[in-house]
Computed example of a mutant assay.
Amino acid sequence: MSAFPTPDTRTKPDLKVLRTDRQAQVLHIELHTPEAGNAVTEAMLDELLMVLDDPDPTVRVIVLSGAGSDFCLGGDRTELTDYLAQDPTGGGIRTSGIKARRVCEALTSNPAVTIAKVQGKAIGAGLALVLACDLRVGAENATFRLPELALGLPTAWGGLLPRLLSEVGSSRVRELILTCRAFDAYEAVNLSVLHNVVPEDDLDQAVAAWARPILRRPPGALRVTKSLLNSYAAASRLSDTSALDSELMASVVAAEHYSRAHPQRRTGHLF
């Protein structure tokens, strides 16, 4: 359910695909392109960076949600086609991938506690946004999927893979990525993708139940504790190569695009 009857245009007048609502020390950020399933676009990444890149020290909790029936259906694949049309070497994909990593890092490293509120589908990039948050609650109808391999793409968006390995474990992640199967909210809790599952109508109440005690914590201690948690998590991901995500994605997509455009080279008939 959406917590935003009207857009907050007072503090962020330039926002087109997000809605923000500041309620005391809690900032609500809603992905707001429900007609497109809140698919992640270049414009959405730019606006998320606009909101997250310069943290307000008075904000103690950030709630990330999606408008409509689904949290986020993943990345906008039509933009990949447009990027390749403009630059077949994948330059646009690299730029977008760098922004994606910055957005996810901004959620993870934000001094405020970040809470993902998930209903419906969270696919690919949508799942990456969820995992970048500190606390994650899902509706009973929430489902998750990593379809990248089926789409001919690597699991290389926003640092998703190292976060998955850290939170879920390599054996289960391997199965989810190779099969591309969907999993429901209750399995997501067992996998540590979610912390809690509630009826959809109770999502706001579940978020508030987390936010209330967080807001009572001394701000200095809370910031330091979150920094410590992030530092120890990073230490467990010493082989994190997510800085290369944009290069990997661009290389694979550009190579596949070239292969389709030159089928004779793919089959070995070079002349």
Rank of each mutant, 00 (worst) to 15 (best):
D82F: 07
D201Q: 15
A255S: 10
T114F: 06
L160G: 05
E47A: 07
A100C: 06
H28M: 08
S166C: 09
D76G: 01
H257C: 08
S236W: 11
V224L: 14
Q23F: 09
R212C: 03
S2I: 06
D46M: 05
A188Y: 10
L129Q: 01
T155W: 06
H195S: 08
L238K: 08
P13L: 12
T155P: 08
Y83R: 09
D46F: 09
I62R: 04
N230T: 04
P219A: 15
D56Q: 06
P13C: 08
P162R: 06
N141S: 14
G152C: 01
I93A: 05
D184L: 01
P34Y: 01
S166M: 11
R174E: 15
V207K: 00
R77I: 11
D14G: 15
Q264C: 05
D134W: 09
A243N: 14
D87Y: 01
V63N: 08
S242L: 06
S171M: 10
R260K: 14
A206C: 04
V137A: 01
T9P: 05
V193S: 03
P111D: 03
F271H: 15
L153S: 05
D56N: 09
A142S: 02
D240W: 11
Q23K: 13
E35Q: 12
E200V: 14
R237F: 12
V63P: 07
R77A: 11
R77L: 14
V40N: 07
S96D: 08
L52S: 01
D202G: 03
P154H: 04
G268W: 11
E247M: 08
S69L: 12
L160S: 02
P88G: 06
L27K: 07
A122K: 05
T95V: 08
P88Q: 10
P7A: 06
V113D: 00
V168I: 13
S251A: 15
P263C: 01
R266G: 05
D82K: 14
S246F: 00
D53T: 11
L164T: 03
L194D: 07
H195G: 15
H195I: 04
A112R: 02
E35G: 02
I214R: 00
E200A: 15
D240A: 00
P154Y: 03
S2W: 04
T9I: 13
T267F: 11
E105T: 13
